[in-house]
Structures are given as structure tokens and as C-alpha cells.
């Protein structure tokens, strides 16, 4: 029972640690996907006296990824009935060039204002519309959510690491006599610490299985799926072999590193 309790404290610490890391990665992926969706629906409108080229604009604003001329045909069609064809032709000549510019990433409010200023500083550009409010709120919510999650993850990771250090110290103290006796007969550091590495190896397997199970079943749970699809959010699929394997290897390396640090430190005392 006592041994199970000892194992649980390491399994839980590793589980919480890697769950929070995996959760942050998942959230990061979700936010990246949402940002991509947002950016694909977002564009800046530029009005210019002269024809613009993407290459020239990119030199001024590196975020511009795509430049598409907006045809004035729709506006002119609407005016067809109210104006003579001669005036319409004159108007067509006098009309400036309209462009829709797509960006490759979602800039912050400040950056967007800089982009507007840079574009407006060009002689040929007469107006720039960035439609700030339409997407800024959603984007800011994403950013806040991500920051909060990162902060919580860091706190959880720190607490888990401290718990792991403490538990491994307890294990060493519990086996102190055995380690000492082995030392009297010439056992090397590795011989004396093998049992610790075996313990964390087993615990790493259990904790990574637990995290894998959650991240495999969560995106496929109908309740979660419904709720997220209502928000147009798609959880990334967890690859058992690739992601689960990575998780196990990271958990193993991490826990063994802690065992090495603690046991080396304690053997020096």
C-alpha cells in the first residue's frame, strides 16, 4: 500500500506535468488554426491612384502576402441607369484602383496601425481601410487565453518538478541503509541507483499512458466534439505512436534526469 502511494505520487506528478504541457501544445495548435481561419477571411482594402504591385508593397509591409485588384464593375453597373454612358466612361477613367491585400499573420493592433501609416505614406495610396474592430476582439481573446494557459502550465510544471524532487528524495532516504550497505561492498553509483531508475521507468510508462488516453479519447468524445464544433473548433488528432512515443521518451528522460540530480546531490553529502 505504501509502495503504491509512493508510485502514485510520481505517476501523478508526471501525469500533471505532461498533461499541462500537452494541453498547452493542443491549445497553441487550436489557436493557430483559428488564427489561420481568421486571417483567411481578413483583408485590408487599399485605394490608390496608380497600379500597385505585390513586390513593391512587400518591400514596405512584409506581412502582405497576396494582393488582388477589386473590380469597380459592380459599382459602375449600379450607376448605369442614373448616368449616361459617356459620363460613366469618364467616371471609369477617373476612378482610382481598389485592392484587397491579404496578410500572412494576424498583426497586433499597434502593428496594424503601423501598417496603415506605412501604406498611407506612399504618394500613390489615398486610402487604407484595415477593419480593425471586426477581428481584433476575437484575436485578443485568443491571445489572453493562450497567455493564461501558459502561465498556469508553467506554475503546474514547477510544482510537479518540486514534487518529483521531493518524492525521489524520500525514496532515497527510504533506501538509504540499503544504498550504504551496497557501498560497503564496493557497489558503483549505478548499482546503488538502479532501483530508482527502474521505479521511474515504470512510473513514466503509466503516466504517459494516462496522458495518451486522455488526448486520444477527448477529441473523439461526442460531447466535447459537439461543443467544439459549435464554436467551429477542431481539436488536433493525437497520434498514439508518434505523440505517445514522444511523451513517453520525454517523461522517461525528464524523470531520469531528476533521479540523477537528486541521487548525485545526496551521495555527495
Amino acid at each position: 500500500m505504501k509502495s503504491l502511494k509512493n508510485h502514485l505520487s510520481v505517476i501523478l506528478s508526471l501525469f500533471v506535468l505532461f498533461f499541462s504541457v500537452e494541453f498547452s501544445i493542443t491549445l497553441h495548435d487550436v489557436i493557430q488554426n483559428q488564427s489561420k481561419k481568421l486571417i483567411s477571411n481578413y483583408s485590408i482594402v487599399i485605394v490608390s491612384n496608380k497600379k500597385l504591385t505585390l513586390d513593391n508593397l512587400k518591400l514596405k509591409v512584409k506581412e502582405i502576402d497576396f494582393l488582388k485588384p477589386i473590380s469597380p464593375k459592380n459599382i459602375l453597373d449600379r450607376l448605369k441607369n442614373d448616368m449616361s454612358s459617356k459620363n460613366l466612361a469618364l467616371l471609369q477613367i477617373a476612378l482610382p484602383y481598389f485592392y484587397s491585400a491579404k496578410l500572412n499573420s494576424l498583426p497586433s493592433k499597434i502593428r496594424l496601425s503601423d501598417i496603415k501609416k506605412t501604406l498611407m505614406s506612399q504618394k500613390e495610396i489615398t486610402k487604407v481601410e484595415v477593419f480593425t474592430k471586426t477581428y481584433q476582439n476575437i484575436f485578443q481573446i485568443f491571445q489572453i487565453l493562450q497567455i493564461v494557459t501558459y502561465v498556469f502550465s508553467v506554475i503546474i510544471v514547477v510544482i510537479s518538478i518540486l514534487l518529483l524532487f521531493k518524492q525521489i528524495r524520500i525514496w532515497i532516504l527510504e533506501h538509504e541503509e540499503k544504498i550504504k550497505i551496497m557501498g560497503y561492498f564496493g557497489a558503483t553509483y549505478w548499482m546503488k541507483s538502479t532501483f530508482l531508475y527502474k521505479l521511474v521507468f515504470v512510473d513514466s510508462i503509466f503516466s504517459s499512458i494516462l496522458v495518451t488516453l486522455i488526448f486520444v479519447f477527448l477529441p473523439n468524445n461526442s460531447y466535447v466534439e459537439n461543443k467544439l464544433s459549435n464554436l467551429d473548433i477542431l481539436l488536433p488528432q493525437f497520434n498514439i505512436l508518434k505523440d505517445g512515443g514522444m511523451l513517453f521518451v520525454s517523461s522517461l528522460i525528464f524523470s531520469m534526469l531528476i533521479v540523477t540530480i537528486v541521487s548525485r546531490k545526496m551521495s555527495r553529502k
Binding site: 557501498g183 560497503y184 564496493g186 557497489a187 553509483y189
Partner: peptide, 9 residues
């Protein structure tokens, strides 16, 4: 340490 381990054997 390593020589001590050897000696103790």
C-alpha cells in the same frame, strides 16, 4: 570514489 569501490571489493 571509483578506486574506493574497487578496493572495497
Amino acid at each position: 570514489n571509483s578506486k574506493l569501490n574497487l578496493l572495497r571489493r
